[in-house]
Design a protein around this nucleic acid. Structure first.
Length: 273
DNA sequence: GCCCAGGGATCTT
DNA sequence: AAGATCCATGGG
C-alpha cells in the first residue's frame, strides 16, 4: 500500500542536515531509509508530497513516529520573530521541511562518537562498514543486501581489530568500551531516558569518548530532547558571526535543538565563513 | 602528497 | 579552570 501525504517535510533537506548517516538516494528521487529492521523507500512526487512504499500499518506503527509527524514544526518556527532575529528567521525559512527524526539512541550514540574529527562522507563509510560487518541482512528492493545497525551485543562481539577495520581510527577504543558497557547492561539506554535533560547529559558524558558535543547530538537525535543545542564548528561560526551580542537560549526553549538544525543546515549549505 | 574533518582525552600551565 | 597537544584515517 502506498501512503501519500503533504506536510512540513523535505527529505532532501533532512538528509543534508547532519542527523542521519545511512539514508541512501536511489533513482527517481527515492530515498532508501532503514530504522531498526524496517525498510522504507520514500519517493518525492513534488515539493512536500511523498509516496511512502509501506503498508498503512507500518506507517502508523513505525514511520509516523520516525518522522516525528505528530509535531507541528510550523508552530515551532512561529517562535521566531523576523524583526528581533532576522538571521534565524532566514535560516528557518531556508530549512523549512527539516524535522528532528526519532532515531535509535544506541545508533545515535555510536554514530556521533564516530563523527568526531571525521568528515560526513567518512562517517557514512565507517558506519556502513560496521553495519555490514555486524548487522543483520535485509533484502532490498533490487535484491541487494542492506544491513541493520548492529545491536549492542552484536557490536560488543567484535574485536578491536574488526572495529579498526571499519576505519574508526583512534575511536576504536571508545566504541569498544561503550559497546561493552551497554551490552552488559551496565548502562541501560531505556532507563536513562527517564532522566531530565541535565542529568542525561551528565550521564552520557561519563562514557569514554563522549564529550559535551557528542552527548548533545545523542540527546537531540537519539533521545529527542529538542532543547539540546550541539555546538560544532558550524554552530560556533554562527554564534561568532551572527550572535556576537549573544544568542538567547531562553527565548527558544524548549526548541533550541530545532533552531540549531536550521542554523546548521543554512550555514553549511551556503558555506559561509 | 596535502589538508582537515559535526571533538575528546590527556597533559601543561 | 583554562589552554595546548595528540590522536588514526578517509575524502576532497
Amino acid at each position: 500500500m502506498v501512503v501519500t501525504f503533504k506536510d512540513d517535510l523535505d527529505l532532501d533537506k533532512i538528509a543534508e542536515s547532519g542527523q542521519c548517516f545511512r539514508w541512501q538516494k536511489k533513482e527517481e528521487n527515492t530515498w532508501q531509509i532503514v530504522t531498526g529492521k524496517e525498510l522504507l523507500y520514500a519517493k518525492r512526487l513534488e515539493a512536500g508530497l511523498y509516496d511512502f512504499d509501506c503498508t498503512e500499518i507500518a506507517y502508523e506503527t513505525v514511520w509516523k513516529n520516525y518522522f516525528d509527524m505528530q509535531q507541528n514544526y510550523s508552530e515551532i518556527r512561529s517562535l521566531i520573530s523576523p524583526k528581533r532575529d532576522f538571521f534565524l528567521y532566514q535560516a528557518a525559512e531556508y530549512g523549512k521541511g527539516i524535522r528532528i527524526l526519532r532515531q535509535d539512541p544506541w545508533e545515535m550514540l555510536i554514530s556521533f562518537i564516530i563523527s568526531q574529527r571525521k568528515s560526513i562522507p567518512a562517517i557514512r563509510t565507517a558506519i556502513d562498514k560496521l553495519c555490514e560487518m555486524a548487522g543483520d541482512p535485509i533484502t532490498g528492493k533490487n535484491g541487494k543486501m542492506i544491513y541493520t545497525f548492529p545491536s549492542p551485543k552484536q557490536m560488543a562481539a567484535l574485536s578491536k581489530d574488526q572495529l579498526a577495520a571499519c576505519g574508526l581510527g583512534y575511536r576504536t577504543a571508545y566504541i569498544w568500551e561503550t559497546a561493552h558497557r551497554v551490552a552488559s547492561e551496565e548502562i541501560d539506554l531505556k532507563q536513562i531516558n527517564r532522566l531530565d535533560d541535565k542529568a542525561l547529559l551528565k550521564k552520557l558524558s561519563e562514557l569514554y569518548g563522549v564529550g559535551i558535543k557528542v552527548a548533545n547530538c545523542t540527546m537531540l537525535f537519539g533521545f529527542h530532547r529538542l532543547d539540546s543545542f550541539p555546538k560544532d564548528v558550524w554552530i560556533n561560526r554562527v554564534l561568532e558571526h551572527e550572535y556576537a551580542a549573544g544568542y538567547s537560549f531562553e527565548q527558544y526553549s524548549p526548541y533550541n535543538g530545532v533552531m540549531q538544525q536550521y542554523m546548521f543546515f543554512y550555514y553549511r549549505v551556503n558555506k559561509e565563513s
